[in-house]
Simulated scan of single mutants.
Amino acid sequence: MTLKHASTLLAAAALTGGLLTAAPSAVASTGAGESVQAAVATPAVAARAQQPRKIKINGKQKGQRFYLVGRIKPAKRFSLVVQRKVCTSNTDCKKKYTKWKGFKTTRKGTFRVSIAGPTGRAKRVYYRVYAPAGKRYAPAMSDKSIYVYKF
C-alpha cells in the first residue's frame, strides 16, 4: 500500500462519517528500494445505539367504560403491550405487573385501548403501557400508571 492509497482511505472514511480506529502502521515499498510508513485506518465496529421512545398515557371514562389513551414518540406504527396488576387492597400493593393485552398504535403514534375495572375481590387494577425493544428502538415504559378502583 502506498501513501497515496492510505490518504485516499482516510479521506473516504472522513466523507462517509465512519468511525476510524488506529491500526498498527503498515510499511509499503515504492519499488525503488524506498519504504514508506503509513497508518492503516479501519472502520470501528461500534454497536448502533438504539433510539429512546416516550410514552404518555391518560385514563378516560365514557359512561361505564374505561379507556387508556395516549401517544408514543417518535410517531410511528408500533406494537405495544398493556400490563396490569390486580390488587385486593387499596394501598401497598406488592403484586407484579403481567402482560394483559397487545395492540398497535396508529401511524400518528396515538392509541386508545378499552380496559376493565376490578372484578371479584379486587379493589384496584393498575395499568401501564410497555414498548418492547426492536432493532432500532430501546424498550420503553409509560410515564405513569393508571388505576381503576371500586368504591
Results as ranks from 00 to 15, higher is better:
residue 32 A to N: 11
residue 39 A to I: 06
residue 84 R to M: 14
residue 96 K to V: 06
residue 141 M to W: 11
residue 65 R to D: 14
residue 128 R to G: 07
residue 61 Q to A: 11
residue 144 K to I: 10
residue 123 K to A: 07
residue 74 P to Y: 13
residue 35 S to L: 05
residue 78 F to C: 01
residue 134 G to E: 01
residue 37 Q to I: 08
residue 145 S to V: 05
residue 36 V to M: 05
residue 7 S to R: 12
residue 131 A to G: 11
residue 55 I to Y: 09
residue 11 A to Q: 05
residue 11 A to M: 06
residue 87 C to P: 12
residue 100 W to F: 15
residue 66 F to W: 14
residue 151 F to A: 06
residue 39 A to E: 05
residue 103 F to C: 10
residue 151 F to P: 08
residue 135 K to P: 03
residue 144 K to L: 10
residue 75 A to G: 15
residue 29 S to E: 11
residue 107 R to N: 15
residue 101 K to D: 08
residue 73 K to C: 00
residue 114 S to K: 15
residue 103 F to G: 10
residue 100 W to S: 15
residue 4 K to E: 08
residue 114 S to T: 13
residue 145 S to C: 01
residue 9 L to K: 15
residue 145 S to E: 13
residue 57 I to V: 14
residue 74 P to F: 12
residue 18 G to F: 07
residue 102 G to I: 04
residue 43 P to N: 06
residue 47 A to S: 10
residue 72 I to N: 12
residue 63 G to P: 00
residue 142 S to C: 10
residue 120 G to D: 03
residue 25 S to V: 09
residue 70 G to N: 11
residue 36 V to A: 12
residue 86 V to L: 03
residue 108 K to L: 11
residue 33 G to E: 01
residue 58 N to Y: 06
residue 7 S to C: 00
residue 6 A to T: 04
residue 93 C to R: 01
residue 80 L to M: 15
residue 121 R to W: 00
residue 118 P to M: 00
residue 108 K to D: 13
residue 42 T to R: 14
residue 96 K to Q: 12
residue 25 S to Q: 10
residue 96 K to M: 03
residue 148 V to D: 01
residue 103 F to Y: 14
residue 120 G to K: 13
residue 93 C to G: 07
residue 25 S to Y: 09
residue 40 V to K: 05
residue 146 I to K: 00
residue 122 A to L: 03
residue 41 A to F: 15
residue 60 K to Q: 12
residue 102 G to E: 15
residue 109 G to H: 06
residue 43 P to Y: 09
residue 25 S to W: 05
residue 73 K to P: 00
residue 131 A to Q: 05
residue 140 A to L: 07
residue 65 R to K: 14
residue 55 I to N: 09
residue 25 S to M: 08
residue 33 G to L: 04
residue 63 G to H: 04
residue 96 K to S: 12
residue 71 R to D: 14
residue 62 K to W: 00
residue 105 T to S: 15
residue 86 V to P: 06
residue 103 F to P: 11
residue 91 T to L: 13
residue 9 L to W: 01
residue 131 A to M: 07
residue 104 K to T: 15
residue 133 A to I: 01
residue 92 D to C: 03
residue 65 R to C: 00
residue 128 R to Y: 11
residue 77 R to W: 08
residue 89 S to R: 04
residue 28 A to H: 06
residue 137 Y to Q: 08
residue 144 K to F: 03
residue 150 K to S: 11
residue 150 K to F: 02
residue 64 Q to I: 02
